[in-house]
């Protein structure tokens, strides 16, 4: 699949997984749709599958005119040489990708793994909390904690039963697994913080809580653990351009200090992160994003009138009214 061996040195290369080619192709080898907004892409990139660690993210460019969007790595398979991204279609780029990213197509750009890997040693009893966009990326963390011998309590939140995915994967690596749904159609009825309360009640000796999800949810998680003095790590999801520490767009305030999420994070102490600042900064381009999405859905309807797969105008309006279009960033 990978063209061109390096000239004259194939012998020396034997046994190494390192491949070099003039332009890597980032082929999509599998896709799964969890709901009408959430989809999974498995992308062939053996080198990245080998390098990726839980908590890291990638930057994706779907086409030449596209924007660079950060997405947390939801899984990686070193044997198959693939990485997995779980994406929620909330903005222009992620909706466009929902249509264009089919098995056999390739991404224009994929770079990573970026960010400092999560620390998955130390704690004996860990709660891994994923909400909304954060459910998929919390999975490799739960697995890594388990592999390192910790007692893992998985807590995930969905709006309703139909949106639940990867339950089997979580059950396989968690010692306890709590699903929370807003309407109670699966697991317990309530918010993710209710799940956390439940877990803390049963296990007062939880040593660490890791939360990934929309900022408002991570903020609630941090507040839930603060009175119990449980170490809380959150994976922040600001707007990024390069992901290599160069633009400073992803800066967050942590304990009064400015940190760049792409190179200093994305994991920070949840009790120190200034979530209000983070949420305010996530709205930086909401106008531009809305305009782009509207323009795009317009052009889709023009090209393809009455196509059932496309969001109708009011649906798109609703999606945009959700927490923030830029939460597509780094959620997965």
């Amino acid at each position: 699949m990978k063209p061109k061996n390096r000239r004259g040195s194939s012998n020396a290369q034997a046994g190494s997984a390192v491949e070099t080619s003039e332009r890597r192709k980032f082929e999509i080898v599998a896709r799964e749709d969890f709901s009408d907004v959430t989809y999974l892409l498995e992308i062939h990139h053996p080198l990245m599958a080998r390098a990726a660690k839980p908590g890291q993210f990638v930057i994706v460019m779907s086409h030449e005119h596209g924007e660079r969007i950060p997405l947390t790595i939801a899984d990686f398979d070193r044997l198959k040489g693939t990485i997995t991204l779980v994406i929620q279609a909330v903005g222009k780029t992620t909706r466009e990708m929902q249509q264009s990213c089919q098995v056999g197509t390739a991404l224009y750009g994929l770079v990573g793994p970026m960010g400092v890997p999560s620390h998955t040693g130390g704690a004996r009893k860990v709660a891994c909390v994923g909400g909304g966009l954060g459910v998929a990326p919390i999975f490799p963390l739960a697995r890594a904690f388990k592999e390192n011998g910790a007692y893992v309590i998985g807590i995930v939140g969905f709006r309703t039963k139909d949106l639940v995915f990867w339950e089997d994967k979580f059950r396989a690596c968690c010692d306890e697994f709590i699903i929370c749904t807003n309407d109670g159609s699966a697991g317990i009825k309530g918010l993710i913080t209710d799940g956390i309360e439940l877990a803390i009640e049963k296990h007062p000796d939880i040593g660490e809580l890791v939360a990934i999800g929309p900022p408002i949810m991570m903020k609630a998680c941090a507040e839930a653990t603060r009175p119990h003095k449980i170490k809380t790590v959150v994976s922040v999801n600001p707007i990024m351009v390069d992901g290599t520490g160069m633009c400073g767009g992803c800066r967050v305030k942590v304990g009064g200090q400015v940190k760049f999420a792409c190179v200093d994070g994305p994991d920070f102490d949840g009790h120190q992160v200034d979530f209000d600042d983070l949420m305010s900064r996530l709205r930086r381009f909401s106008q531009a994003e809305r305009a782009a999405t509207e323009r795009w859905s317009e052009s889709c309807r023009m090209k393809n009138p009455g196509s059932p797969g496309l969001p109708s105008p009011d649906q798109s309006g609703e999606a945009l009214a959700l927490p923030d279009p830029f939460e597509e960033a780094k959620g997965g």
Partner: peptide, 28 residues
């Protein structure tokens, strides 16, 4: 950290490399 405060690097990268000045033909 207010919105509207950015580094020159971010401005220039968006505009030059990502072609944001041609928004919305380019997505950035």
């Amino acid at each position: 950290s207010l919105n509207g405060v950015l580094s020159a690097n971010e401005l220039l990268t968006r505009c030059n490399l990502m072609r944001a000045r041609e928004f919305p033909n380019y997505d950035t």
